[in-house]
């Protein structure tokens, strides 16, 4: 999977490294901004009330 992505990135090794860094950052951003905030309430840390409203 990662090898496939690496082969399909354009340019020489330096450009590839730069583009893959950007890709990683984009994935981390999406995870922190959208995926984790959605997943976190499914875990028990949020249950602090007695009536579970």
């Amino acid at each position: 999977m990662y090898g496939w992505i690496w082969r399909h990135l354009p340019g020489n090794a330096w450009v590839k490294a730069l583009v893959s860094t950007l890709l990683v950052l984009a994935v981390v951003y999406v995870l922190f901004q959208y995926v984790f905030p959605w997943a976190e309430p499914l875990l028990p840390f949020n249950d602090v009330t007695v009536d579970n409203q």
């Binding site: 981390v28 995870l31 922190f32 984790f36 997943a39 976190e40 875990l43 840390f45």
Partner: peptide, 10 residues
């Protein structure tokens, strides 16, 4: 990453 998010980022 998720642990970092829960422990630190929130």
């Amino acid at each position: 990453l998720f642990v970092v998010y829960v422990l630190f980022w929130t």
